[in-house]
Write a protein that binds this DNA or RNA. Structure first.
Lengths: 342, 342
DNA sequence: AAAATAAGTGGAACCGGTACACTTTTATGT
DNA sequence: ACATAAAAGTGTACCGGTTCCACTTATTTT
């Protein structure tokens, strides 16, 4: 752990001033003779010199770092999102600081504090729904905040990127109705979340259009974490008049819900038809292959990164910016056509 | 985007010197009267002051950031690893810069450069196998480098954390042999990777112990990315004398291989028994539930973070440090007992 | 009560780059 | 050859914290 060479070491070794070295480092910032440039580059190589980002960032705030604050990267949906965001950011020469909240307000608050201290230029987050003051503060500080997948209703001025939750849930439900299902259950995100509410709304709309009765017992909200998702599934199965079809619209808990169904020995699609909000590769590997709502994660990522860097790039396209991308209903084999319906 | 308050703004507003504010910021660095401390804290709150990490890091290298360089976070194995590493790091007050290589030498090289410029205190990586000079340079610079899951043979002095690949593959293969299988195939990582080679070695050992003939046609190496995994699966199925059992030991491509098997209409376990190296939640949801080798990702993460911060924490426990954690063979339903064997 | 010790505070150098203002060298035009 | 402009290079203040050292003011010791 020897001490690293600085720009002054390089300047001295090359027999020039630090200003010249700096110019070599930042092409276009000033003229340097070709010979000098070559000599300086040589010296940098032999000394193993690398400029320190920290020093650079001190002068101008860093447009070089982005905070990505997700609930939980072990969830495939968020993992894929993280992967895409990182790639998108790298393509723009931006680094990504990854943080996780585990859906915990307190943790979220701490993570936000460190992001503030790092003066990241933008934050892409799946908010827990609290820490309103901090989110506001961030905006005031000029940090570009983008909520992805979910949002917070009481913070309407924050940018949001998500799929069209209403329409996705509506079309999924409509598909089930078209297959003759009359008792269709739905497990969605928490009632406090926009995601959860919008999907339920789409579901209701579809039922209404199909002329089906709405039974509140068939509508379940489940927290993003914990056993709630599984419990909701069990509850639906144990109803006096259980559903013949189920929309699992809580992206964060799809696996958990499916595990319960599987353990309960449910035969899909014979006793229960299923559509899930998740396009993990394994949904196709299951028997039967699951009919899914595919979220275009690449688009979510691209738009998020773009918005999160909008300030940096000068253009602030009339906040708040709400981007809804279309989700795709992929029909596979987990939906049965009911024979004797009506 | 107004300009943010600095430590001098706070000092002035509180009627003290910057030195005092700094002491308030870093408790234990010097005495401050209780009344003064309270006043300074008040001012910081009303001004919305947050110290800048970049400035802080300038004085002393940052023991506050860790680089995590993974092949691909959309792969569940790496995703879970990332999640655990982030949690482990956060528990120590360390931030994680996430980068991905997509198994590309060039990209890896670029990511390493930015990590060097950021002077991260440690790097946890799944190396592509190239960029030897850069890895060496990093070590010389005093950065703690830890290879996780894989390693590079020609860099024996770098720390490694992984499962016991030899023993895991051996026991998986032995299980199949004990069930009467005589033609057991294996798809492992690239021959150039330690992971791939060690798993093959364990496989051979098990065959030898069981007194089974070794057929080189049954041994397939597949690159971590691309169609190679699927192709290897197809090739095995199309053999004149195809295997009755298969060990999928290429963690990075398990899904890809299974997709091929599924598309080929293979009945598991009737026509083909399968054991895979992956403990994603969905392996249990499939029909049949897959018998797997479970990698203790939490342990991998914990040890990696620990080693990656060892220099920072003063203790350099005799490099190189090779930590092998035990993997667990979880028997489920994808292995059939052959009736008329021998 | 004098001397020794501790507590509280302020001034300024420093970390490693960047960029502005400036001087010196080289090239261009007629 | 001479004026003029452009190119190449230098010196140094600055970014926002941390910390050493000097200094003043309480508190304790004998």
């Amino acid at each position: 752990m020897q001490k690293q060479p600085t720009i002054r070491d390089v300047a001295q070794a090359a027999g020039v001033s630090v200003a010249v070295v700096s110019r070599v480092l930042n092409p276009g910032s000033g003229p340097v003779a070709a010979a000098t440039r070559a000599r300086v580059n040589d010296v940098m190589k032999t000394l193993g010199y690398h400029p320190r980002t920290a020093a650079r960032e001190l002068k101008y705030g860093p447009p070089t770092t982005l905070g990505l604050l997700l609930a939980d990267v072990s969830n495939p949906f968020f993992a894929r999102l993280a992967d895409q965001v990182v790639q998108e950011a790298h393509a723009r020469g931006i680094q990504v600081l990854l943080m996780t909240t585990q859906e915990d307000d307190q943790l979220e608050s701490e993570r936000l504090a460190t992001l503030i201290e790092r003066r990241v230029s933008g934050i892409i987050a799946t908010p827990t729904g609290n820490n309103l003051a901090t989110w506001k503060q961030l905006q005031d500080l000029g940090t570009d905040v983008v909520f992805v997948d979910r949002s917070i209703p009481s913070l309407p001025e924050v940018d949001v990127v998500s799929i069209d939750n209403f329409e996705s849930a509506r079309s999924a439900t409509a598909l089930l109705a078209a297959h003759g299902h009359r008792r269709i259950g739905i497990i969605s995100g928490p009632a406090a979340s926009t995601t959860g509410r919008e999907r339920i709304a789409g579901y209701r709309q579809a039922l209404e259009t199909a002329g089906l009765e709405q039974d509140e017992l068939l509508i379940r909200h489940a927290a993003f974490r914990g056993p709630a998702g599984g419990d909701a599934a069990s509850a639906l199965l144990n109803l006096e008049e259980p559903p013949t079809a189920l929309v699992v619209a809580n992206t964060a808990q799809v696996t958990e819900v499916l595990r319960r169904l599987s353990h309960a020995g449910i035969d899909i699609p014979r006793t229960l038809s299923v559509i899930v909000f998740d396009d993990s590769p394994w949904t196709e590997l299951m028997t039967p292959a699951l009919t899914i709502v595919r979220q275009p994660i690449d688009l979510l990522a691209r738009h998020s990164v773009q918005l999160a860097l909008s300030n940096t790039q000068g253009k602030t396209p009339g906040k708040p910016n709400v981007i809804r991308v279309a989700a795709e209903l992929v029909e596979r084999s987990s939906v049965a056509r009911l024979q004797f319906s009506k």
